[in-house]
Design a protein around this nucleic acid. Sequence first.
DNA 1: GGCTTTGTAACTAGAATGGTTACAGATGGA
DNA 2: TCCATCTGTAACCATTCTAGTTACAAAGCC
Lengths: 149, 149
Amino acid sequence: MSTSSRFAVAVHVLTLMAWSDDEPLKSEQVAESVNTNPVVIRRILCDLAEATLVVSQTGAMGGSRLARRAEEITLLDVYQAVNCGGVFSLHRQHPSRHCPVGVNIETVMGEVLDEVNSAVGHVLAKITIRDIVLRLRPCVSAAGNKRKS
Amino acid sequence: MSTSSRFAVAVHVLTLMAWSDDEPLKSEQVAESVNTNPVVIRRILCDLAEATLVVSQTGAMGGSRLARRAEEITLLDVYQAVNCGGVFSLHRQHPSRHCPVGVNIETVMGEVLDEVNSAVGHVLAKITIRDIVLRLRPCVSAAGNKRKS
DNA sequence: GGCTTTGTAACTAGAATGGTTACAGATGGA
DNA sequence: TCCATCTGTAACCATTCTAGTTACAAAGCC
């Protein structure tokens, strides 16, 4: 019943960069949009940089920008970059080896976990950061239309 | 990067009951196979009972058994019964409402979360406790063959 | 009535998450 | 060359979650 919000924030960050069209963003600007601390953002940016999804530059006038085009970054790339573990966890303690169920349940549930994770990956691989930007725009235009009426 | 093992344990428990063919199991017996404390098991059994997947009886000679046949309990039933939350979490703090991305990213990521959760459900709905028992047996026979050679 | 077992509350230890401060190192510009 | 700026990262803290544990009331069989 607990997962981290790192994935959602990472997508948010990349979407901001796609939105801001190649202009480097400072961690403080991003933090303001996400409503958190700049260090939290920089930690996530480090993960994204390791996966070559963003490029960061230190120093004055530095910041981070996308390392690829928005349509070439899938949510699966992001999911793997921030390494949020699997959908569920296996047993903490190994079950009894003297029980016919206990001795093999970990293997079987491991297979189930693989199937589930694979299904998640399949969904995420079909969605790119560009798609997220496009899904965002209708909301923005709707707001614009409201003002007009 | 953290989920609970409640789902894996719940499947383990139900599989034990399917294996033991309608003979009521005490929480202490189950705890021995899972290698944990009986109270941990009883807590999970309460969730499973609320979802009418098991029936428990207090008192001497009490215990728990399946409320339906093993082939009529899917892993999706179990997943929902132990309510392990979704695959990932949305933002802890709401993003800035003054940013065109921040103001709508929660909605969009909520939709993505729904898609992913739905894919997980689709996989889990196809696997029953009976299937888990069947997946277990080859391992057991393999162990038997080893002793024979 | 007495023994057994579940249901549940209360407390604890340990881990994970995110927030915060602090600072070294890189970078660009005056 | 010096300074202001920004990232990368360590260290620490508060909060939350998980599961382990003890304890006990209530239910149910013999």
